[in-house]
């Protein structure tokens, strides 16, 4: 008997359904499909297996939800940025400093994703912008359906810029379209310069890259030129900002860019 599915040829008979599959022990066989019928009738059988070929995105359901989010946001004239980085790259501090600078002119809103806690929401609440925290309870990424559920709450009349701070993770969030206008990949100087090469699935999909914590460069063996080169290597033409949210270095150019997006 085959260990794969328990099929075997009983004495004097054939298995009930023809099928083929590899066998664990390397024995090959195909099952003949002819047999006598007790009831004395004869017929031909349809093949008992059928193969359907297709070309269907596995994340189709997520993509549909993402397309609906995109249309919903576009109708309201909202530009949505999906911010993705490893944990600790400085997404939250960057958003705090950014919103403080521009909120007088540009109405912002934030969706913050974390596995647990609303710590980020509590920090961002101080900026005065509407903030909704999504706790994913273990999931390593946000998905479009989760975002759809909170959009009406966080996007208010007049909101122009929506920041979606994804769960800190350089791998998984890259696979899930949320309906954002574009993705922003962040990497801090405390990480390796070669992050773009190690995690290309994210960086090829970003329109913008932000190098954070530039104030630490003097204290690190970290090569900015190399990092710039690697970013251009995986994504030629990617728009890159270099800044420190702590010192404010580079924030003017970043904020001016964001405001031009909604001007």
């Amino acid at each position: 008997m085959c260990e794969e599915c328990g099929c075997h040829t009983p004495a004097g008979g054939a298995p009930s359904r023809p099928h083929t599959h590899p066998h664990a022990r390397g024995e090959a066989h195909d099952h003949p499909h002819a047999h006598a019928h007790g009831a004395g009738h004869a017929h031909t059988h349809d093949p008992a297996t059928r193969t359907i070929t297709l070309q269907q995105r596995v994340l189709e359901r997520n993509d549909r939800a993402a397309a609906a989010n995109r249309a919903w946001l576009a109708e309201r004239g909202v530009v949505a940025l999906n911010l993705i980085s490893s944990p600790g790259a400085g997404k939250t501090l960057l958003l705090e400093r950014t919103i403080e600078r521009i909120r007088g002119r540009t109405a912002c809103a934030v969706i913050a994703g974390d596995q647990f806690t609303d710590n980020d929401k509590r920090r961002l609440d101080r900026t005065g912008a509407p903030v909704v925290q999504i706790e994913t309870h273990g999931a390593c990424h946000l998905d479009a359906e989760r975002v759809a559920r909170v959009l009406p709450e966080v996007v208010r009349d007049g909101t122009r810029l929506l920041f979606i701070e994804n769960v800190g993770n350089l791998v998984c969030p890259a696979a899930f379209d949320l309906g954002e206008t574009f993705k922003v990949g962040l990497l801090s100087t405390a990480e390796g310069e070669d992050k773009p090469l190690k995690y290309p699935a994210l960086f090829v999909n970003c329109r913008v890259a932000v190098v954070t914590k530039t104030d630490l460069i003097p204290h690190l063996d970290w090569d900015l030129a190399k990092c710039r080169r690697f970013l251009q290597q995986v994504n030629p033409g990617i728009y890159a900002f270099e800044l420190s949210a702590r010192t404010g270095e580079g924030l003017d150019a970043w904020c001016a860019y964001l405001e031009r997006l909604v001007a």
């Binding site: 009930s16 359904r17 099928h19 017929h43 059988h45 349809d46 093949p47 008992a48 297996t49 059928r50 193969t51 359907i52 070929t53 297709l54 070309q55 269907q56 995105r57 596995v58 994340l59 696979a175």
Partner: peptide, 16 residues
């Protein structure tokens, strides 16, 4: 990331 093919086991009664 695409689904390319599915091999289905068809119901025997339908065939019979």
């Amino acid at each position: 990331f695409l689904l390319r093919s599915v091999e289905l086991g068809m119901r025997e009664e339908g065939a019979a």
